[in-house]
């Protein structure tokens, strides 16, 4: 059920992209997403398509794996397209009853569809090729300047990695509680939405109680192992840029320049 979500799950394989520094991947994703929203004509999309497919090829992650992730947002995608298609004012090219499709509408809808699809594929390449831990490390490092303005960067990163560690444990626990409640006659399957939501109460209450208990235990275990926040902490796996990472940055810069130039043409 919840286990089947593929969107953004790490795909363990060895590739150039997998070996890149997480910071590079975060920055590149950001650049790619920004570039998507800069385009106003088709030539820009050709550049983005080439770039995206180049990266997909390099990452060695099967293409269908990424498309699978798209399924989760298909409805959102359709809604956006439909709204843009029918509600953009402009020169009508098709009229039927109250439905009007305009030239501009068709164009924006098409762009929007491509933008969203690329956005999702682009960001899922990042999560597919980076372990969650690596990702939090990268985020922590990139956000470090924010700690100057009192943003608890280390704490946020630590919370993220602990959350990631406990997701499978809590899933298992949910499963266990569910079975225990079913054994005692609870019904999670039948009824309308309201009844189904109500039947989740005997599932959620014990789950929350146990999550708090776990949190308490974990905090004690962390303190017992001398955890006292980010200060004075060393890293077992520090992030160090390799030659390939600089190349990736250069490639990003080249891509950004190319996009800007194409827009000007």
């Amino acid at each position: 059920m919840i286990r089947d979500i593929t969107l953004g799950q790490y795909y363990p394989i060895d590739s150039v992209i997998h070996r890149l520094d997480p910071r590079v991947k975060l920055v590149s994703t950001l650049i790619f997403v920004i570039s998507l929203f800069m385009f106003k004509n088709f030539s820009g999309y050709i550049a983005a398509t080439l770039f995206l497919f180049g990266i997909i090829k390099l990452s060695k992650v099967p293409f269908r794996y990424m498309v699978k992730g798209l399924k989760a947002v298909l409805i959102l995608l359709m809604i956006t397209v439909v709204f843009n298609l029918f509600l953009t004012p402009g020169k009508p090219i098709f009229e039927f009853w109250i439905v009007t499709i305009t030239d501009e509408g068709l164009k924006t809808a098409g762009f929007m569809a491509i933008r969203l699809t690329y956005l999702i594929i682009g960001s899922s390449i990042m999560t597919l090729t980076t372990t969650p831990n690596n990702l939090t490390d990268g985020l922590e490092d990139l956000m470090r300047p924010l700690s100057k303005v009192r943003v608890p960067v280390h704490e946020i990163a630590m919370m993220m990695s602990i959350a990631l560690r406990f997701i499978p444990i809590l899933l298992e626990e949910t499963d266990k509680i569910m079975k225990a409640q079913i054994a005692r006659g609870a019904d999670f399957e039948s009824g309308n939405i309201v009844q189904k939501a109500k039947s989740l109460v005997p599932l959620l209450v014990p789950l929350f109680v146990s999550a708090f208990r776990r949190a308490n235990d974990l905090a004690m275990a962390m303190e017992a192992r001398c955890y006292r926040g980010g200060e004075g902490r060393t890293k077992m796996k520090p992030l160090i840029y390799q030659a390939n990472d600089y190349r990736a940055y250069a490639l990003n810069a080249a891509y950004l320049i190319a996009v800007i130039v194409i827009q000007r043409l």
């Binding site: 831990n133 602990i162 560690r165 974990l218 275990a221 962390m222 192992r225 796996k237």
Partner: peptide
């Protein structure tokens, strides 16, 4: 409740 890392060595 006392293992913090997502990988044994970590």
């Amino acid at each position: 409740n006392q293992i913090i890392g997502t990988m044994v060595e970590e």
